[in-house]
């Protein structure tokens, strides 16, 4: 990973929609050079996806719920934590899975339409897995900051319009 690649990653992480020509101007490079680097970052699975950060709380029809579930597991000799994690992340309602240090092993993020739906998933699908020893479910009430973006209050420019 060279400095230019790192800088391009930084720019795209800040705004994935920055046009390649603009990135080229920002970095004093040619557009085709930037294009080549971005392509290579994609091919090496460093850039996986280009997503928007959405504040779903501002979407009127949205009434879904998100839960973070602490899962303790007993890893099997042949498959280890990775195998258990895979059994879990294959479910489409699972949005994120992390291996953690500390009081539990896997942190699982679930999205569902209702609390009941999430509870049903935990009791019928997650808890019944062989390797799962216990689960603790926390429902998310409000998002303040996500992926480095502060959701509320609105971050306005507080400077005077013209100053020396």
């Amino acid at each position: 990973m060279n400095e230019k690649e790192l800088e391009i990653l930084e720019i795209l992480e800040g705004n994935a929609r920055t046009p390649l020509a603009t990135i080229a101007d920002m970095m004093e490079m040619e557009k085709h050079e930037v294009e080549k680097i971005v392509k290579s970052l994609e091919e090496r699975d460093i850039i996986l996806n280009y997503q928007a950060v959405i504040n779903w709380d501002h979407v009127p029809s949205n009434d879904g719920v998100t839960a973070m579930i602490d899962v303790k597991v007993a890893p099997k000799r042949e498959i280890g934590f990775d195998g258990v994690a895979e059994r879990i992340y294959r479910f489409p309602e699972v949005k994120a899975v992390y291996l953690m240090s500390g009081a539990y092993d896997l942190s699982v993020q679930i999205e569902g339409k209702t609390m009941k739906e999430v509870a049903f998933f935990v009791s019928k699908k997650l808890s019944t897995l062989d390797s799962v020893l216990s689960t603790t479910t926390h429902f998310l009430l409000k998002k303040y900051k996500h992926d480095g973006v502060i959701f509320e209050p609105e971050q306005k420019d507080k400077r005077a319009v013209v100053s020396p």
């Binding site: 005077a160 319009v161 100053s163 020396p164």
Partner: peptide, 21 residues
């Protein structure tokens, strides 16, 4: 600069490249 500050300050939707900070 003062004059421009007063002018620009009263307008809505100004994109400012006038700020020295």
């Amino acid at each position: 600069i003062r004059k421009f500050f007063d002018l620009a300050n009263e307008m809505e939707g100004v994109v400012s490249l006038g700020v020295g900070e």
